[in-house]
Structures are given as C-alpha cells and as structure tokens.
C-alpha cells in the first residue's frame, strides 16, 4: 500500500474548452492535514472534486491523467465512483445538511443506502459516535429528530462533518469549510480539523493562507490551474521558493 493517501499524476481537467487544472502532480501523505490554497478561481475546488470523482456530475468536465487513492487508480474503467466516495467524505463551502431530513436522518442516509450498519442499534451508536467526533453531540442529542434549519451555520457544518465521518472514510475533503461560518464557529471547526487528522487524511481547500498556516501540515499553492509549489507548511510559509507564492502570502494576489 502506498504511503500517500492521494497521488495525482499529470492530472488535467477541462470544462469544455477551458483548461482548469494543468499537469497537476501532487502527493498527499496519510494522516495529515493537507491544505490547498490559492486565489479564487485558481481551480482548487475543481482539483478537490477530482479526488472523489464528483466532477462526474458536471456534464462538461473532462479529466485526463491519474488520481490514485492509496495506490489505486480512481479513473480507470473498472473503478466504481460509488465505492470511492464511500472512502472519501466531503464537506462543502456552504453548510449543506439536507434541510428536509432530520438531524438523525442526515447522518443515517449514507449509512443506510450503503448498508454500512447492520441494524437500528448499530445505526444509533454510529450516529452518536460521529456526532461526538464532530463535537456536536451535546448540542443536538435531545433534538435528533429536529430539522437542521434551527442550527447555526457552524453547527450545520459540524453536522456535515459528522455526516461524512459516520461513513468511516479514509480521506475527508473540505472545500473552504469556514467560508460561510462566523468566527466562533470557524474556530471550532479548525480545532476539529486538527483532531480529525489522527484518524483521517484531511484535504482542505482554503481561501485564506492564515487558515492553512494554522491547521495544515502540508500545503500546496495553486495559481491559474497550476501547482506553484508544495511542501511542509512551515517551510512554505517561512521561505517560499517561488515569487508568486511570496506575493500570494503577502496578500498581493487575490
């Protein structure tokens, strides 16, 4: 088995004629928080969605090259996107628990459809476990049958994280998870990310370098669809090799 959770090799993504990811070669080590940063529109969200084949939803998106998940190619003909997505959880920019499902069902739905639990008991305990992991259990344990509409943005986002980890994935993709959350909620989520890397590999797309500096072990800087540089967070932030990275970190590229 590979020592990397995700490896891309000459990965190219096109939206119709637009070349949005260019010759991307990335290696994401296991059990780390790997941040992908770059100005908006640089292709970081697209890159993230190539890791769980969510780009399949986009009719005009075309993927070339290779993405390996723990050494297994996910873009070969005989891989099933559903199996991959079971192993790769995702958290989104907009906290999106299903508004028409209860808090309980929001977590249960993926488990149920994928038959990941045997019975109601196991379901209950799995849901409790995931909510505890997401640090939300104490806040919602008495209202699991409520709809998520009354939760705060930060709570909703933690519910989405619980929904993802309930599936016991190996990798969790996070697409700017704090972009729409208030500072207090953001802090909790950042703490949570830190916790999560013990058990999972977290790939975090962020629009703020500061967040990458706070929570990540490794960082990759993407600009205009290309990988500018990647490495240990401490090193990139203190002595970037590239002028572009330096400019970005100084806040000159938006």
């Amino acid at each position: 088995m590979s020592e990397f959770a995700i490896e891309t090799e000459d990965l190219n993504v096109y939206y119709g004629k637009n070349h949005v990811i260019k010759n991307m070669n990335l290696k994401i080590p296991k059990n780390t928080v790997f941040a992908i940063m770059g100005p908006s529109g640089c292709g970081k969200s697209t890159l993230l969605r190539s890791f769980n084949r969510l780009l399949d939803l986009n009719k005009i998106a075309r993927v070339q090259g290779s993405v390996k998940l723990f050494g297994e190619e996910i873009y070969s003909n005989n891989t099933d996107s559903i199996v991959i997505r079971k192993d790769v959880g995702m958290v989104f920019q907009y906290p999106n628990p299903f508004p028409h499902l209860t808090i309980y069902d929001n977590i249960a739905i993926g488990l149920k459809m994928n038959k990941l639990v045997k019975d109601k008991n196991e379901m209950d305990s799995r849901i409790e476990w995931s909510l505890k992991k997401a640090g939300l259990w104490d806040e919602v344990k008495d209202r699991l049958e409520d709809y998520p509409s009354n939760l705060s943005g930060g709570q909703k986002q933690r519910l989405v994280i619980a929904r993802a980890i309930a599936m016991k994935p190996k990798v969790i993709l996070m697409d700017e998870p704090t972009a729409n959350i208030d500072p207090v909620g953001s802090k909790k989520i950042e703490d949570l990310i830190f916790e999560l890397k013990k058990d999972y590999t977290v790939v975090l797309v962020t629009h703020t370098p500061a967040q990458a500096a706070r929570v990540s072990d490794y960082v990759a800087f993407i600009y205009m669809g290309e990988l500018v540089e990647t490495g240990k967070t401490g090193i990139i932030f203190t002595s970037p090799k590239s002028k572009t990275t330096e400019k970005y970190l100084m806040g000159e590229l938006v």
Partner: peptide, 17 residues
C-alpha cells in the same frame, strides 16, 4: 442547489438514491 446534489453523491449514493 447544486451543493445538495453534490452532498448526496459525495455520500456514495447511486443516481437513483
């Protein structure tokens, strides 16, 4: 909203589900 579609598929659901 597209994000709910993504959420559903990200949970490993089939198209039908």
């Amino acid at each position: 909203p597209h994000t709910y579609r993504e959420a559903a598929y990200s949970l490993g659901l089939t198209k039908y589900e």
